[in-house]
Amino acid sequence: MSGVVKLQDVSKTINGKRIIDSLSFEVNSGEVFGFLGPNGAGKTTTIRMIVGLIGLSSGDITISGYSIKENFVKAISQVGAIVENPEMYKFMSGYQNLMQFARMSKGVNKEKVDEVVELVGLTDRIHDKVKTYSLGMRQRLGLAQSLLHDPKVLILDEPTNGLDPAGIREIRDHLRMLAKEKDMAIIVSSHLLSEMEMMCDRIGIIQAGRLIDVQRVRDFVNGAENSYQLEVSPKDEALLVAQQLFPTIKMSLTDNGIAGQLKKDDIPLLVNEFVSKEINIYGIKEISKTLEDRFLEVTDKKGEVTHA
């Protein structure tokens, strides 16, 4: 585990407007890093800066220690990427497209091309013209193109865009496999939060050009204590019993029972107490927050701060 991709105080100013403001983070090998943010927050600009399509106004980005500014060729040779839609030469076949890119990196031979085509599951259609491909197939071809030269860093902008559920799952499995087995550092941006939750180890949240949070997905989702909902009757009596048992925990009435931020180990105690007090229990539900809730929570909160 070491920072393969490092952003240090990266800023970008276009026409006097600061699009990206002092962004700093690291992505380690073997992890999938999710890049999250509302539209126009600067996700794509940041990704374009990492791959050298857009210049930096200040700061620096290094990949395996090579600066993208000073040593572009060395730095970029470690990177495979799809930036936004995977546009290819439509008048050529998928294979011919891949050969174009194979010729531009050192040591990529035909066997490697075949191997990558197999990996992304395009073997049947690879000799058809790209203009006959569906969006999902283009996405796969884009992935193939980015894997040709065995990069240490894989950068994918909206990789599941336009894929059907089976395709999404497949890409997800691919990415997890590549991170685990090939020890790649993978940077993914997506607006599908549920996707990110399943795919990523860590996520960074960017808003209005500023990085406002980097956390492990699990910590992030579980950042707030879980709350439990108990369907019980009579609920007024139940609330009284629960408050006597756990005076420090705040409990509240709901439509058909009570709810509170309990610890997992508290549940059996409470159930026993209810049973002995002859309170009927119909169900107990854990309410875990989704990434989406947390995301909205975080961006809202920080948004207010910046607006104030």
Binding site: V51, N85, E87
Partner: peptide, 14 residues
Amino acid sequence: NWGTIKLLLIRPIS
């Protein structure tokens, strides 16, 4: 126009 410039310029070639 094709958008392929993005794939062309992220190769290890100046």
